[in-house]
Amino acid sequence: MFLRALTLLGLSALCIYLFVTAPPPLPEEGKAGAGTTIPMEQAFAVLAAENDEARRLWTQEIVGAGKKVGLSFDEDWEREEVEAGPLPALFLKETARQMQRMSTDLTFFLGSDAPIKEANRFEGQQALEFAEIRATGEPQFFEDTEHQDQVAMFPDVASAAACVSCHNDHVDSPRDDWTLHEVMGATTWTYPAKAVSLEELLQLTEIYRASTRGAYERYLEMAASFEDPPVIGDQWPRDGERVLPSADAFMEAVDRAVSSATVLKLFDLARADR
């Protein structure tokens, strides 16, 4: 009898401990917090738009203009003996690597159905979704049910003549008939949640930007070790000299180019959730 009473007392105390005087529950991973809830498709679209601008800036303002003032960009840019920066696809790959260093489940990749490197060829569901992108030009979304990951694929378009000529001329390229503005591949984004809060989306955007900055800083670090290092400061290669913008200047330009659209999109998403 005594033992039963003791057991009952213990269970009651446990229930009070766990539920009645409970502290705030732990946030659940993969579930949006309180406040505005943004479907992951929309969140991916915000991130992809940020990436488009950073990529455009790198391709046109650093690679395109940089080549005209004597800077080199090479697929072997990571080799110590090569004094060059990453080609656009490799800059994106470096951004993805920088993202891995942070505590985030957000990942992104660049692939194609006709890649220069075979490892970048789409397979399985990604190949099917990319066929749809090629046909419609529209981004595609699906769920990796096994890993509970939300997946988005956004078209990657040949935005500069250099994209086309480089891929057409490359010895390992399976195609030599790429044309300007053609969909050459797609970025694939994954995140293990169906929705995020506004704050979480801001954090993901911050993570993306920090990754872009990390990739650019790595290039600057390597450029500083060139035998004839370019001057790093406020000037851009378009100014006609063999110079590079500092990381702050580069990220400011990204900021100027995309922040207005990002903020407007966030307002739209907040309104749509009300």
Partner: peptide, 20 residues
């Protein structure tokens, strides 16, 4: 153990195509 150049970086295997 971060490596700037890794032939098999772990994050690349999170891509959906490596599911199997």
């Amino acid at each position: 153990h971060e490596r700037k150049a890794d032939l098999h970086p772990t994050h690349e295997f999170t891509e959906p195509k490596y599911f199997e």
